[in-house]
Amino acid sequence: MSDEVQISTWKTKVGLAEMLRGGVIMDVTSVEQAKIAEDAGAVAVMALERVPADIRAEGGVARMADLRIIEAIMDAVTIPVMAKARIGHFAEAQVLEAIGVDFIDESEVLTPADEKYHIWKHDFKVPFVCGCTCLAEALRRIGEGAAMIRTKGEAGSGNIVEATRHMRAVIQGIEELKGLRDDELMTKAKEMGAPFELVRQVAREGKLPVPNFSAGGIATPADAALMMQLGAEAIFVGSGIFKSEDPEARARAIVHACTYYNDPHEVAKACRGLEGAAMPGIDVRSLPEEERLATRGW
């Protein structure tokens, strides 16, 4: 028996992601919102200065949140607290690790700091989650050390269409690999632009090596049930709760639908619990290319 203690291993990082499964992670911008989220049954909160819908509306450069907001939220709730760093901004990530956040989202919702390189996440003790639009992108991020993957969707749009597109792309990508022979996988990895060893692992195991969550456009209990049935293992709700007319009831309803996603009667009960309108939505087709967040990162 060894006396050695290993702090922050790959197993403890992916392990925390596993612990969040089946749950709802909610974007919050204040202590008050964080408490509403925790009371509604959120498994974690994402501490932000502005939710994606406001970032989209206000424009300008979106950066890591004010540490005072993040630290106040960390003090106010017992559930894990996540925070966002800009794509490629490893110094923001170092700061977030230093103050002790539980998970970092290297996020396309913030303005990218680097258009070519993502953060080398293996260097950190804190686990990372990254967005993806397809299997190849998911495997590139896992290769860099992401311990959780989420769909990018189209954040702040209140429109689920991009999240479904991305989730189906990941699941279909996995199905396609499962049918390939070993000698076909190297060529496939080259075509995908994904790390060969991870491509081979996914082909063998038939699933991603880390939990696969969904984000970007979830606004209703039925949206949550849709993503869970498509294969998401948990969901992030960004603007969908605190940009709606009924944040407390909506937070509870989305947790309800996420828990019993495969029972339509329960999802119906969750829908009846709503007390106001969902956030206003955007037709993603009407968005000019430069306003689409999902195209940030590669």
Binding site: V5, I7, S8, T12, L16, E97, K125
Partner: peptide, 16 residues
């Protein structure tokens, strides 16, 4: 709860 610290303090060790 969270008696050993936050996530960055999570660890592995042998146990009897």
């Amino acid at each position: 709860r969270n008696a050993f610290g936050r996530q960055v303090e999570s660890f592995e060790a042998d146990l009897q």
